[in-house]
Design a protein around this nucleic acid. Structure first.
Ligand SMILES: [Mn+2]
Ligand SMILES: [Mn+2]
Ligand SMILES: [Mn+2]
Ligand SMILES: [Mn+2]
Lengths: 231, 231
DNA sequence: TTAATTACTTTGAATAGTCAAAATATTCTA
DNA sequence: TAGAATATTTTGACTATTCAAAGTAATTAA
């Protein structure tokens, strides 16, 4: 069994690899994600690599092996099921769920997890729209575009939010920009570097391109190749 | 914040003090309860004493201070609320709940705990009939007698089970000797060292005095002073 | 009351994680 | 291409927790 420390390293590694399309993750990046110094990350990564969960290339970075990926996905599954459980069953605030799940993900037994999964009806996405890995360790990653890519007049629906910070999520919630919400793009002038989006039944919200890029939507305008851009 | 290790020491200490009516708990006993060697317990207890949570008397034992007691009760509250939650909401087996709660009790936040408490309707006892300490750190310990003390022909109801081991609890469950179950004592001959108890709607169960003593009941026969005996 | 048994404490060593600061390597810039 | 700036790795040290084994005190038995 991997320690909770190692589980955290693996999970962050997996998430980061998604962002960087499988490239080696540099130590500095991993250290920042886990919240330790770079020296600590180097030490831990060498230990993780020794146990066969990752490949470590000095001065280049780390990458998960298949085994590491599987373990990371199990942790991520626990994390996301717990988030949904906390929100749906316990009524915990959307913006607090992530932090709570960060701890719980390491102590939930398989039995309890199975019960939670059942209680929630084998859900496929968490409260932020993030896909929940299957118990066999697979995730589907649908190609989505973001609010920033839509033209004025488009109508779409929020599917996923790419920022887990409590502050951002609180802002998203009060604005009405939550998963499943329908929105209309009112303005999107690339020159302005900001857009205006109006969630159904709510006043319009002004978003910088950086902020808009955090909201992934569907359907996407078929205008050209649909590309996803993450900050 | 006390570490999970220290929380475990404090909780076991509190439980043991209940058994021994407030006496100093000897190192060997504590070590066995926590599952470490006596030397380790000595070291930890000295650290705990240094932080003001217990009083350590070399070669005599340890005793919680008021502060230590309060902390222990908060851990116990988390433990017991979690047990009930696991059984009632998640449908976890009665006999597994204790082990699961043993881990969870250290990572549940106050927020989540409050939500669980609410969801369960501010319960006062856990699935084993153990009283749940209040959030302000108080427990009432009703004086109960055990099945072993009842005379043949008595009718009573199980209130609490004083053994948390999964095996014993499984036995209790299949026998029908669960909290709230009504039972009739069919035989109790002190000379035999065993009794026969029949739970309502179930076949009679033969119990040694030691086993019978683990089932606390109410009402108690007013015959003489009602005394509780724990193994 | 001496000797044996038992309980407890001390000591020395190990493991997992961590940081700060020093040493290196890489990459960028002029 | 020689610094300068940046990123990474190494080193030495520290905390928390644990065990095994050796030493010490207390209790029990004879
Ligand atoms: Mn975590
Ligand atoms: Mn999420
Ligand atoms: Mn515990
Ligand atoms: Mn209990």
């Amino acid at each position: 069994m991997a320690s909770r420390t190692i589980e955290n390293y693996l999970k962050q590694l997996w998430l980061q690899q998604q962002e960087s399309r499988g490239k080696y993750v540099p130590m500095g990046k991993l250290a920042a994600l886990v919240g330790v110094t770079a020296g600590t990350a180097t030490t831990m990564v060498k230990a993780i690599a020794d146990s066969g969960l990752a490949k470590y290339a000095p001065r280049a970075g780390v990458r998960l092996t298949r085994a590491g990926e599987q373990l990371a996905l199990h942790v991520l599954r626990r994390h996301r099921l717990l988030e949904l459980f906390l929100v749906e069953i316990l009524g915990i605030d959307w913006s607090d769920a992530h932090g709570e799940a960060e701890e719980l993900e390491h102590v939930i037994s398989e039995t309890v997890l199975a019960r939670i999964d059942l209680l929630l009806g084998h859900p496929s996405v968490d409260p932020h729209g993030d896909p929940i890995p299957s118990s066999s360790g697979t995730v589907e990653a649908p190609e989505l575009c973001s609010l920033a890519e839509l033209q004025a007049g488009s109508k779409t629906a929020i599917v996923r939010i790419m920022d887990q910070s409590a502050e951002f999520l609180r802002f998203a919630q009060t604005s009405g920009l939550v998963p499943k919400a329908a929105v209309v793009i009112e303005h999107n002038n690339p020159q302005a570097g900001a857009i205006s989006a109006r969630p159904d039944g709510k006043p319009p919200v002004i978003l910088s391109m950086a902020a808009a890029a955090k909201f992934l939507v569907r359907p996407c305008p078929t205008a050209g190749k649909q590309r996803r851009k993450r900050s």
